[in-house]
Nucleic acid binder design. Structure first.
Length: 735
RNA sequence: GGGCAUUUAGCUCAGUGGUAGAGCGCUUCGUUCACAUCGAAGAGGCCGCAGGUUCGAUCCCUGCAAUGCCCACCA
């Protein structure tokens, strides 16, 4: 054997560095990432028989659109896991003979990107206002050219078999057309309106935010009891007192019945407050109204109504329009002139401090209690978000929500694990109109003459599965009228199959894609939503770059190789449970690579480079080691197929690992050292080939590399080799 | 205030109505020609707590606790 060792072109140890980039280039050059180069003719469509799977795949295509990462981002562990999962699905389906499309791209990420570039410019002492809108957007485009594709290159390092010829960006010219088309469509339907309402305002980003773009933090504050004439009101925000225009009590509250509908006299802290006709500048009148929003059991049972600075108060105002509205906090987070000369220009917290002092001096503070409550923060910069009266564009959600709800309830869209369906339903059933305008510069302009606002980033990403496939150019709004001559992608690949994503954007993104697809294409954009695990630190904490608790997947790939990294990620993905990240499983992955490598080495040496795969039933001994291993392999193939269809990737990988290492290597290979008959060698060869195929979606680089070194005639690349199907136990896989 | 998830070996996690499993770590032995990124053997668990159902529960039911995550306009 030692003579033949030289013929066997495998070093004793597997080195991913010598393999990965080279193999990736081979794949790219092969063109097999592009479905146009895949022949789906060999796909077996069993006559009328529906396979029992969770995937609804009646077509011969299999499509996944990648959740487009922000151009500001770099790959984090969540991306790496998600990309690996999608690659497993795509690679398996490709081997099964489907025309697979995995469509890559990036999101312009309005606020996030604007913030990053602004920060960058600030280092040079430049503000976006110095540049002006046009120049600033040019700067962003420059920035995008430089850094925007980093994350896509990182996907390549991970082995992602995406069709790069179809890479999309949400600010592409065609994509902008799609966004415009969608807006106009809604507008014509009367679902888009402009209105002055309280919105969530970030005073740092200088824009409104939707409810979903908020984060919450518990804050230990004070609860102030303030005298209003004969009454006492509790509040955590005494500075909004300056914007009070009414007091509300519950209509059933006997204590305050006599005040309802009457004006009461209160002392003002600043005689410059421009109220209506103050009889005495130091005293103002305020109306007491009855409204169910007041809970008699909370605080004193009285609400101070500040319509311009509180969502609930705004709703009260909508029911009692005789009440005036007074905007005392401005867009920059400072008190306005309406707050009075004494407070004008102060920041909110300064004003709060000052007014508490002033009220105390006037003897108007009854008492102060400690109080814990949630404050809202901007999800992009963590500034405290203010409810603020503002003129914005809104999209009516009633009918769109109903469409999406029906699709999910009827099972046209399935969530995996199923419990995430409830997250979607809770949101969609209590939905409010969507504030779709943002007061930033980077994004899709609201397509209305004279408008300076841009659209919410999520308005455009809601169209991702449509716009990336060519909508609306190739399609006249209705699925039936798609003209394949204009753009075959939409017709061929829509509806896509699996949408794999992190849980935190289920409503921000997934829900909105569902109703967009239903509205514009009359069918959901995907049949299955796979909500993957969240990767946490070993202590169960959130991975955070700023806290230094994040793990960089690129570091892992550098250290252990991409296959080992993928192994570690998938090994820990069991049933969608959160992952408390443990690097030792990547170590195990690297060891497993080496094991597979050496199993191959052994078999090539053993067979002297002549792989004999011509095994024919029956076995010489149906109860012998050869038969036993073969039947175990058949069971493995079936289990792995079932597990992947159920999205139990971790389970599938555990099964393969167990078989390869402990059954194949530890037992059978040891057995084969003393049993050198032809049948044993055939089983060795067949088992190797089948396990390489099974492993390819999980560990694509090493399996492709090994495959390329196997002495087999008329060999295809492993990436398009036939996937081991579940067949009867008396069938030969290979051949 | 609601809801969801988790709680099993030192660590990260599988698992089943009937003497508990993996990976990593640890101990001992092994320089046999695939692999020391290896092999063999081994130590190590009142399967969160308290009740209940059952002949029998880690697994089913109830309650509790701890941790994490979502949602909610209680001023």
């Amino acid at each position: 054997m030692s003579n033949n060792a030289e013929k066997i072109d495998l070093e004793p140890q597997y080195d991913p560095k010598k393999v990965e980039d080279r193999i990736y280039k081979l794949w790219e050059n092969s063109g097999f990432f592009n479905p146009d180069n895949l022949d789906s003719g060999k796909l077996k469509v069993e006559g009328g028989k529906k396979k029992k799977t969770t995937l609804n795949t009646p077509h011969s295509t299999f499509t996944i659109v990648v959740p487009p990462p922000n151009i500001t981002g770099s790959l984090h562990m969540g991306h790496a896991l998600n990309a690996t999962i999608q690659d497993i699905l795509i690679r398996k389906k490709r081997m099964e003979g489907y025309k697979t499309l995995w469509l890559p791209g990036t999101d312009h990420a309005g606020i996030a990107t604007q913030n990053v570039v602004e920060k960058d410019l600030k280092k040079q002492g430049i503000s976006r206002h110095d540049l002006g809108r046009e120049k600033f957007i040019e700067k962003i485009m420059e920035w995008k050219e430089k850094y925007g594709n980093i994350i896509l290159d990182q996907f390549k390092k991970l082995g992602a078999s995406m069709d790069w010829s179809r890479t999309r960006f949400t600010m592409d010219a065609e994509y902008q057309k799609a966004v415009e088309e969608a807006f106009i469509h809604y507008y014509k339907k009367g679902w888009i309106y402009q209105g002055e309402r309280t919105v969530n305002w970030c005073s740092r980003c200088q824009t409104s935010l939707s409810d979903l773009e908020l984060e919450y933090k518990e804050e230990k504050g004070k609860f102030y009891y303030i005298k209003y004439g004969p009454l006492t009101i509790g509040t955590v925000r005494p500075e909004t007192k300056l914007g009070d225009t009414a007091l509300a009590v519950n209509p059933k509250d006997q204590r305050y019945k006599k005040y309802v509908g009457k004006d009461i006299l209160i002392q003002s802290v600043d005689n410059s407050i421009p109220r209506d006709k103050p009889a005495n500048p130091k005293e103002i009148h305020i109306r007491v109204i009855a409204d169910d929003a007041a809970d008699p059991n909370f605080g004193t049972g009285i609400i101070k109504v500040t319509p311009a600075h509180d969502h609930a108060d705004f709703e009260i105002w909508q029911r009692h329009q005789e009440v005036p509205i007074l905007k005392v906090i401005g867009e920059k987070g400072r008190m306005t002139d309406k707050a009075g000369i004494r407070y004008e220009g102060m920041k909110i917290l300064e004003a709060r401090e000052q007014i508490v002092k002033d009220l105390t001096e006037l003897g108007l503070i009854e008492r102060i209690e400690d109080y814990a409550h949630n404050i809202s923060l901007c999800y992009r910069c963590e500034t405290v978000v203010e409810p603020l009266l503002s003129k914005q564009w809104f999209l009516k959600m009633k009918e769109l929500a109903e469409l999406a709800k029906k699709a999910v309830e009827s099972g046209k869209v399935k969530f995996h694990p199923e419990r995430w369906k409830n997250i979607f339903l809770d949101w969609i059933e209590n939905i409010r109109d969507w504030n779709i305008s943002r007061q930033i510069w980077w994004g899709h302009r609201v397509p209305i003459e004279g408008e300076t606002d841009v659209l919410d980033t999520w308005f455009s990403s809601a169209l991702w599965p449509l716009a990336t496939l060519g909508w609306p150019q190739s399609c006249d709004m209705k699925h039936e009228t798609c003209d394949p001559k204009n753009g075959t992608d939409l017709k061929e690949f829509y509806q896509t199959q699996v949408l794999s994503t992190a849980r935190d954007i289920i409503n921000l993104w997934v829900s909105r894609m569902i109703f967009s697809g239903l509205e514009f294409m009359a069918s959901p954009p995907f049949s299955d939503v796979l909500v993957h695990a969240t990767i946490l630190t070993k202590d169960g904490k959130r991975m955070s770059k700023s806290l230094g608790t994040g793990i960089d997947p690129m570091t892992l790939i550098e250290k252990y190789g991409a296959d080992a990294t993928r192994f570690g990620l998938i090994w820990q993905s069991m049933g969608g449970q959160d992952i408390h990240w443990a690097e030792e499983h990547v170590v195990a992955g690297r060891k497993f690579c080496n094991k597979i490598w050496n199993i191959t080495r052994f078999i090539l040496l053993k067979t002297e480079g002549n792989l004999d795969t011509n095994f024919i039933f029956p076995f010489k001994n149906e109860h012998g080691a050869n038969a036993q291993l073969h039947y175990q392999l058949i069971a493995l193939v079936q289990g792995v197929n079932e597990d992947i269809e159920k999205f139990d990737f971790g389970q599938a990988l555990h099964s393969i690992h167990e078989f390869v290492w402990h059954e194949f290597a530890d037992k059978f290979i040891e057995y084969s050292k003393t049993n050198e008959d032809r049948e044993t060698k055939q089983i060795l060869a067949n088992t190797l080939l089948t396990t390489l195929k099974l492993l390819h979606p999980f560990m694509p680089f090493i399996t492709e590399e090994i495959w390329s070194k196997l002495p087999i005639e008329d060999k295809k690349m492993l990436i398009i080799e036939s996937w081991p199907e579940q067949e009867s136990s008396k069938t030969n896989y290979i051949g």
